[in-house]
């Protein structure tokens, strides 16, 4: 297997909780607890989980917007976090992000052209002709016309705005694009368009996607691999087919059960996938079945990821 493009090793992120000034040790909120992931070139890896499970914090850490408390992130084998992390300018060429809310992700006072030209100028693309070339190209590849770049964000619909957000993420030609719930704020009718656009762009530019989502039906369309997160840890990870057809962890099963019509998505009956009790392999048990809200001020109980099938890992502890 090739060396991974992006490699997250034992990532911890903790936030101090306020309200204990005197004496006692400061309480910490454990957002991410020892997460390890590899992202290969050209792959789409999805992180799914409920809100508050630490998936967005993970994405922010990858983007350098949140400093990890512990652990390391490597890009092409070089540190991407911590004291040896690259500068913002170098980082910008490696990874970009598409944001969830298309109504908050574009500066309302800048035309689309300004939003796209400013980063290019910053990265030393100053010739007028090259600027307009690259902006035209990127506008076309996200399905907009170059003429539309003279407009302000409020003149566009939500779906168009998300296309502009994608254009801005691609303008510097990064290798990794972090997609933070890229379609969850959009109309259902627009979602498919944006998903197809993202898939086309991935093929065209050889992008690697790290997608954050809570919507398994979106994940199913796009991902090569899925990592299910609960309480800052991966509870199950593997190729999407394995996760969807043979979910082991009770939390994964409950997530799949929330798909309104799993038959249409998976070609399976819901009963076949999620009914019946979750079975841990012999000699193991589920450390936390994800049925109750965790105490986020404590670290999770010790457990490990066990390979139950090739490439398919489940978080278990020894019984």
């Amino acid at each position: 297997m090739n060396a991974p493009l992006l490699s997250i090793d034992d990532l911890h992120v903790r936030f101090p909780l306020s309200g204990s000034w005197f004496g006692r040790q400061r309480r910490m909120l454990h957002a991410v607890n020892g997460l390890s992931l590899d992202l290969a070139k050209g792959e789409c890896l999805s992180i799914v989980g409920e809100s508050g499970c630490g998936k967005s914090t993970t994405a922010l850490s990858v983007m350098g917007l949140q400093e990890p408390t512990q652990g390391s992130i490597l890009f092409r084998g070089k540190p991407f976090s911590g004291p040896q992390a690259p500068s913002r300018m170098e980082r910008a060429m490696a990874a970009q992000m598409v944001f969830q809310d298309p109504y908050a992700s574009l500066n309302p006072r800048q035309t689309v052209w300004q939003s796209l030209a400013q980063p290019l100028r910053l990265h030393n693309v100053t010739a007028r002709s090259e600027l307009s070339d690259r902006i035209e190209t990127v506008m076309r590849s996200v399905g907009l016309t170059p003429e539309q770049a003279t407009r302000y964000p409020h003149e566009f619909s939500g779906g168009q705005r998300q296309r502009i957000g994608i254009a801005r993420a691609l303008i510097l030609q990064p290798e990794i694009v972090v997609l933070d719930e890229p379609v969850s704020a959009l109309d259902v009718s627009i979602r498919a368009q944006i998903i197809n656009l993202l898939l086309d762009l991935q093929e065209e530019f050889g992008l690697s996607y790290l997608m954050i989502s809570h919507d398994l039906s979106v994940v199913e369309h796009m991902s090569d691999r899925v990592a299910v997160m609960f309480f800052g840890q991966i509870v199950e990870t593997g190729p999407w087919s394995a996760i969807f057809s043979d979910p082991v962890h009770p939390y994964t099963r409950r997530l799949i059960a929330t798909i309104p019509d799993p038959g249409a998505v998976l070609g399976l009956s819901r009963e076949a996938v999620v009914d019946g009790p979750a079975q841990a392999p012999a000699g193991w048990r589920f450390a936390d079945d994800g049925s109750s809200a965790p105490d986020v001020t404590q670290e999770p109980k010790p457990s490990e990821l066990v390979e139950v099938a090739p490439g398919h890992f489940v978080r278990l502890s020894r019984s």
């Binding site: 983007m63 350098g64 917007l65 500068s87 913002r88 300018m89 980082r91 910008a92 990874a95 970009q96 992000m97 944001f99 969830q100 809310d101 908050a104 992700s105 574009l106 500066n107 800048q110 939003s115 400013q118 980063p119 910053l122 990265h123 957000g165 801005r168 993420a169 510097l172």
Partner: peptide, 21 residues
């Protein structure tokens, strides 16, 4: 907001973010 975070990921310096965004 997304566009301020986006400016950071695009490599804008803090002062540039404050003045332009």
């Amino acid at each position: 907001l997304g566009y301020v975070q986006a400016a950071q990921t695009l490599g804008y310096s803090d002062t540039r973010i404050m003045f332009t965004q």
